[in-house]
Amino acid sequence: MRYIISILIENEVGALSRVAGLFSARGYNIESLTVAPTEDASLSRMTIVTCGTESIIEQISKQLNKLVDVVKLNNLIEDAHIEREMMLIKINVAQVSKQELMHLVDIFRGRVIDVASDIYTVELTGTGDKLDAFIATLEEGAILETVRSGVMGIARGAKALSLQQ
């Protein structure tokens, strides 16, 4: 099963490699990992998407918690949560109808953020499934390049992963 683990970690040199090293050393799987500093610059927030059995996820969570730099951790699947991923996608519009593409972008609530001759760059956010679905609508050969942020997640409601809670 797929799980999303959120971590607050000290924003220090090497913190990311401690987490990545843990996954590779213990043979755990990482589907995606995103990391950036929080509003408190001494902390980074990391979102890891992984999969495994319940007992493996429990072990991953415990091992992550054991890292001295990890301040807090929660498993988003346990609670109602929102997840988002962002994609930038460069599309060759020489062969496709620009109007049709704009229509598609609208349906997926994307935005065209750069235009060059025959090249549109589109920005799209949503769940991973939505981004996959957008890619599937495009004809073969139309995609020049994609870049995806990996999943970010946050719990619904008052629950927060912060120093205070």
């Binding site: 040199v13 090497g14 490699s17 090293g21 050393a25 001295v68 730099d69």
Partner: peptide, 14 residues
């Protein structure tokens, strides 16, 4: 040294 010892220490510092 920090990198090479990371998997076999409880923690390390530079």
């Amino acid at each position: 040294s920090v990198g090479i010892s990371r998997p076999c220490v409880k923690h390390n510092f530079l």
